[in-house]
Amino acid sequence: MKNFIGNVLFLDRSDINTDEIIPAKYLTENDKTALKPHLLEDLKLPGFDSAKDLDDKQIIITKANFGCGSSREHAPWALEVNGIHVVIAKSFARIFRQNMFNCGMLAIALSDADIEMIDSEFAHTSTNVSIDVENGIIHLSSEEKEYNIEFSISDFDKALIKIGGWVEYADLHY
């Protein structure tokens, strides 16, 4: 299982599409690691600088419909090669969400109220998150506060992330 713990990058916008996550011009790369410097380089978000803001971040918390647009798997890969294995959002585009679990990574959808709460309590502090997959608990902590939020994913998705993705799952079971 991948590592689901780390520092949070808050992306305060809905509808961040896969072109913003990784621009189409890098789709010809045969090697995933070549995507590393280009994650979120075209993100339209005032004040955001992918070269600096991604530094030492392992978890993204964002708004609704993350990963919309083209269904490219390069989007989760670009996250993966940057050590980001978790995205928490109000909602996800369907294929992006499945691609995350297929790669053994976590896409956690929380209620609007939960995300707004996290936003107001933690967004402007340096926040650390650790995730307990077995019990479905997100543990948030900053210098001043700590907080636990419950989440749920399907049994199949749980099986996928426990083993490290669909390739590993299929190789074991079929």
Binding site: R72, E73, A170, Y174
Partner: peptide, 13 residues
């Protein structure tokens, strides 16, 4: 997509 293609190549499912 690529992951499904990998599994297809590897396991035929």
């Amino acid at each position: 997509g690529t992951t499904d293609l990998e599994v297809g190549i590897l396991k035929g499912v």
